[in-house]
């Protein structure tokens, strides 16, 4: 069989090329995208909503606080969160502004891989450092509230030890859980995209 014969077959209409009615096409335009970029956009929207609620709670607590070291610390947490959230938002926009029409297949693939890798890196680092910073902030609040002597006594008690273990667990576990989830959602896809990119240069036999 030669290319011209393939072309002849190719031109034949097939039942799998069902025509969609104009009504169906209109419905599609109002549908929900499930591209990887749209998935990220959706998860970002959820995170922004949850983050905004958390910030409002934090601000409401700050308003209720009396002037003192804890107030200063809470304001520091608020400023830190806002700076990190702003940085995160602008980095994420790199990915969510991705346009599938801009490049050819190879450049599109390279661009998507780069942007997804930046997204993953920022997300992972933000998650890790955010949790660590909040861990330290949390301990500092307890220190300022109770004082060094009472903290030393509390930590050496069995209740104190359990609290420290649980508190540390609450910080460390999300780091690993989020890493796993990110790998499942995006990491695997990036690996597949890299294999595809490699196929442009070195076609598999």
């Amino acid at each position: 069989m030669e290319l011209d014969e393939f072309k002849e077959i190719w031109k034949q209409p097939s039942v799998t090329e069902n025509s969609w009615s104009t009504d169906q096409l209109h419905e599609v335009l109002r549908g929900k995208s499930k591209s990887i970029v749209s998935d990220i956009k959706r998860s970002m929207r959820i995170e922004i909503t949850i983050g905004s609620i958390a910030l409002l709670v934090l601000i409401s607590q700050i308003i209720l606080l009396r002037p003192g070291p804890i107030l200063i610390l809470m304001i520091a947490i608020l400023v830190f969160t806002l700076v990190v959230a702003t940085y995160f938002y602008f980095k994420m926009r790199l990915v969510t502004n991705f346009n599938f029409s801009t490049h050819n297949l190879k450049d599109n693939l390279m661009d998507l891989i780069t942007k997804l890798e930046v997204f993953l890196k920022v997300y992972k680092l933000g998650n890790q450092w955010g949790l660590i910073v909040f861990y330290v902030f949390g301990l500092t609040v307890v220190y300022l509230e109770r004082g060094a002597d009472r903290i030393a006594a509390y930590i050496t008690s069995w209740q104190g030890a359990i609290f420290i273990i649980l508190y540390s667990g609450c910080i460390i576990a999300p780091i690993f859980i989020v890493d796993k989830i990110l790998h499942k959602l995006y990491g695997k896809h990036i690996i597949r995209l890299k294999e595809l990119l490699n196929n442009f240069e070195n076609p598999p036999e």
Binding site: I36, V37, D39, N104, L105, L112
Partner: peptide, 14 residues
């Protein structure tokens, strides 16, 4: 270009 871009890199199977 768009159709192939989506099919190759932008779309994940259900």
């Amino acid at each position: 270009r768009i159709a192939l871009n989506i099919a190759i890199s932008g779309w994940r199977r259900a």
